[in-house]
């Protein structure tokens, strides 16, 4: 009996690892590009987690530090098989990108100096800037919507641009300011909206934020 449950557990770990391992390599465009594939593997194909749970999980995984794909993997792995399950799932989703990133780096080093490759990379450089800008724009739509959020954005931009300060300090300070302002607002009886509109996390089509990272 004991032996059989051990077998079942390690089989589950291997299954977790394999399911997330297959998702990793196909996710150009970062975290949120992984989500539809994770949903397919974990919700429709394997029934590891329920659809409604998945929606809330995405909201939380997107807000916690770290990549949303890795966070979702850790959560599902943990729910299914504890800490070992979380490790298996995260290892599965990270290992392929780890290897592929190194392979990209090696091939770049190999071709370094080739005029055509250098030119192509300059183009790709522009594309990566565009991806970053689009991610910023998408987040801005849901993040900056009232006076307080505008003020926080402008102040943190000024601090970052003028002082050579660790961004981590800006993040920590700004979060406290946001918390305090909501406290003060509710104390004063002012409207304490914390989202741009009510659409976010509500409708079927906005199950996860539109921005991807």
């Amino acid at each position: 009996m004991q032996f059989q449950s051990e077998m079942g557990k390690s089989r589950r770990l291997i299954e977790l690892f394999w399911a997330f391992f297959r998702i990793g390599p196909a996710t150009f465009g970062g975290g949120y590009a992984m989500i539809p594939m994770i949903e397919k593997e974990a919700v429709s194909k394997r029934d590891w987690i329920k659809e409604e749970e998945m929606n809330e999980l995405l909201a939380i995984a997107g807000s916690a530090p770290g990549g949303v794909g890795v966070n979702v993997a850790a959560f599902i792995g943990y729910r299914l098989a504890g800490v070992a399950g979380a490790c298996a799932a995260v290892l599965g989703i990270t290992l392929p990108t780890f290897i592929v990133a190194l392979l990209f780096f090696f091939s770049y080093s190999f071709f370094e100096g080739n005029i055509k490759v250098e030119a192509a990379l300059k183009g790709v450089h522009a594309a990566v800037i565009a991806l970053v800008l689009v991610a910023g724009y998408r987040l801005a739509k849901s993040a900056i919507f009232d006076k307080t959020t505008i003020a926080i954005a402008i102040l943190s931009l000024a601090v970052l641009a003028i002082a050579q300060i660790n961004p981590i300090i800006v993040i920590a300070t700004g979060t406290l300011v946001g918390l305090a302002s909501i406290r003060i607002k509710s104390w004063l009886g002012v409207d304490t909206r914390t989202h741009a509109g009510k659409k976010l996390f509500a409708g079927k089509e906005t199950r996860y934020p539109e921005y991807y990272i």
Partner: peptide
């Protein structure tokens, strides 16, 4: 913790800064 006010309030202050950091990264790139 789901749906708690303090979770939302934390994100409220956090998201504008993340936005700025992303644009800042684009500029530096």
């Amino acid at each position: 913790i789901r749906g708690k006010q303090w979770v939302k309030a934390t994100l409220y202050g956090l998201k504008p800064i993340i936005t700025v950091l992303i644009f800042y990264a684009a500029f530096h790139l």
